[in-house]
Design a protein around this nucleic acid. Structure first.
Lengths: 182, 182
DNA sequence: GTCTATAGTTTGATAGAC
DNA sequence: GTCTATCAAACTATAGAC
């Protein structure tokens, strides 16, 4: 694994645990075993590192969603797959989705990274909207609204489970997703 | 208004905009028009200030929930009242619920403040659970699970609306709460 | 209650040697 | 690519005068 990837991995882990401001160059450098000055060779500054983080995260996530959509399983199973992704991202409550972790610090972030966050959520929302649009159930609410509710539920469930360091919080909050017809 | 209240107000506003680490003594002092050293007269340290913040927030919120529960309106109207509280807390997308703002920084916070956060959520969950327990609808899912889902949805909707600075995000995500029978 | 002064740490960042 | 050296700024905090 090249150094750049190693830097991204370490930084991502820290941000997802403590938020953007909770990740310092000193933390990252020490964990890898280099000096903080070396980080600037790979990334011009912290803002650029943050943007690269969110960009990579969105790419990897998009690939997983694409794989799910192409898998040929039922819509309900696809939804379950998405929930499983958000569940896995918790890692026992230690980490959150990168986008969730960055959202609170939004006002301290540079524009490029905010655009990446917006694009990430648009991607998930688009995927969910298409999923819900396939079914005719719950015609009293739009696919857009259902998608927005599901994403908000997943992000909020992560937030609560992370605070409590308890996956049961996530499971309880998301249980309803499996009981309503997709 | 006494100085202590002024300090709490200013600090709360900053934390709810940028997270705990985004609130500095310099910010708070400057906005009020005093020096940072003066803050230490009212609060021993930043950790104590944070705990006081969450404690006060929980008290105020509990009073509002109590008022709602005593109002004599229908369960659906009570739920709408809670959603309105979370909506108002957004202030156009500028601020989030204090507990939401603190959750991401959880690993950098002292124990007392985490206990306050847990107590806060337990309060809201208890209120919601009782509300849902009153109705016989949706017997296929427990009141506990419904309450957990609603709280997670509200917190996640705040997170997204704050990132986008767009109340429409919150409204879209929470629209479904008003369409299912309580 | 607030101030000045100051300490001690951490932070992101740069220049230049190797 | 990584290092040493160094920087300016921001941060929480304390002591003591007023």
């Amino acid at each position: 694994m090249d150094r750049k990837t190693e830097l991204l991995d370490t930084a991502e882990n820290l941000v997802r645990r403590r938020g953007f401001q909770g990740m310092s160059f000193a933390d990252v450098a020490q964990e890898i075993g280099i000096k903080t000055a070396s980080i600037h060779y790979h990334f011009p500054g912290k803002a650029a590192l943050g943007a690269a983080l969110m960009e990579r995260y969105a790419e990897v996530f998009a690939a997983k969603l694409e794989e799910l959509a192409q898998s040929g399983v039922t819509p309900a199973a696809q939804l379950a797959g998405l929930v499983a992704q958000y569940r896995a991202a918790l890692q026992g409550g230690e980490t959150m989705c990168l986008c969730v972790a960055l959202s609170v610090n939004r006002d301290t972030l540079a524009e490029p990274i905010i655009r990446e966050m917006t694009a990430f959520r648009q991607m998930v929302l688009g995927w969910l909207t298409e999923l819900y649009a396939q079914s005719e159930v719950n015609a009293d609410i739009s696919s857009d609204a259902r998608a927005a509710a599901t994403l908000a539920l997943l992000e909020g469930a992560q937030l609560i489970a992370h605070t409590q360091k308890d996956m049961a919080c996530f499971d309880l909050a998301t249980a309803g997703l499996f009981m309503q017809p997709v």
